[in-house]
């Protein structure tokens, strides 16, 4: 039970990171972006490539940062992947979503995002093959926190949690202390009022894609560190991150963080009462539950 709770918090850390970008995009561009989870897999695979590349070019970097299985090379690869994934998110918007927006129906964006999800997911499958990949082939040994009840935690998991919390705190500082942060929140609340107060809407949208893409890349790598990389990982992540945005309230960054942890914990606690085969349904049950008792989520506001 306690083990499930701890695992849930750790799962929650990458779901939250993924949900932050999704909730911002959904709020500002007003569409459910079903391809957001593919940014997580893109980020994870880009990091895989650069991990290998950096390790080969600078062998000293291929050393583990004890006691983690994470190497210096992978750390560098994460940063590179954040940049590449952020730019990819922006490019996808420029090449596809922006054009669909301009063609008229905002609702069609949801279809377009599903189409993009199919394309990205299967192109990754074609390039990297359908079998799973790992960042490190070594078996990571878990630390025993307690023998009775038995509670195990891997050093990597602690790192993932701490790093995710640090990133979230940095984002919190930006949103609550800088005028750039205010302008993001202003556009989320009222785009045309933000404009008449001098906020450039298209630049803000670019910033949202960059932030969302960057955080998605980290979330993807963290997922890979905790599990393994498979091309269809986006398919398995899309519902949990949507559930996190709905639980937290669409548009609320803090809601997405909290929602992510709730989804992670609920998924792991469900294992206590449900067979593991039902895990994929848990986010859906959570969505239905929230829609019944508090449709606008924990921090969301009603908006047409």
């Amino acid at each position: 039970m306690i083990q499930n709770l701890i695992d849930g918090v750790l799962t929650g850390s990458y779901i939250s990171l993924g949900a932050i970008g999704l909730t911002l995009v959904m709020h500002i561009l007003r569409f459910a972006n079903f391809s957001h989870a593919e940014l997580l897999s893109l980020g994870a695979y880009v990091a895989l490539v650069f991990d290998a590349l950096v390790s080969a070019l600078v062998p000293v970097f291929a050393v583990k940062i004890a006691p983690l299985s994470l190497t210096w090379a992978l750390s560098a690869a994460i940063l590179i992947s954040m940049v590449i994934t952020a730019i990819s998110a922006l490019l996808i918007d420029r090449l596809v979503f922006k054009r669909v927006r301009e063609k008229g129906q905002e609702l069609s964006m949801v279809f377009a995002s599903f189409g993009m999800a199919l394309i990205i997911r299967n192109v990754i499958g074609l390039i990297f093959g359908l079998s799973p990949e790992l960042y490190s082939k070594d078996i990571a040994f878990a630390m025993i926190l307690s023998r009775d009840p038995l509670i195990l935690v891997k050093p990597d998991q602690i790192f993932v949690l701490v790093a995710a919390l640090v990133l979230m705190f940095l984002l919190h500082l930006v949103l609550s202390r800088t005028t750039f942060g205010y302008s993001l929140r202003a556009v989320a609340e009222n785009p045309s009022l933000a404009q008449v107060n001098g906020v450039n809407l298209s630049r803000t949208i670019m910033a949202v894609w960059l932030i969302g893409g960057g955080l998605a890349a980290v979330a993807g790598v963290f997922y890979g560190l905790s599990h393994q990389l498979i091309p269809v990982m986006g398919r398995d992540l899309v519902l949990p991150i949507f559930a996190a945005t709905i639980v937290g309230g669409i548009g609320s960054v803090y809601g997405a963080v909290l929602g992510g942890f709730i989804v992670g914990i609920a998924g792991n606690l469900a294992l206590v009462i449900l067979p593991s085969g039902y895990t994929p349904s848990v986010p859906f049950l959570l969505i239905i539950f929230v829609l019944m008792i508090r449709p606008n989520g924990l921090f969301g506001e009603a908006r047409a």
Binding site: G115, M116, V123
Partner: peptide, 16 residues
């Protein structure tokens, strides 16, 4: 995978 890419492209292409 190829068929999925095709169908994704059809959807996105039509919308664009």
């Amino acid at each position: 995978s190829v068929q999925f890419i095709l169908i994704g492209s059809v959807i996105v292409g039509m919308l664009m």
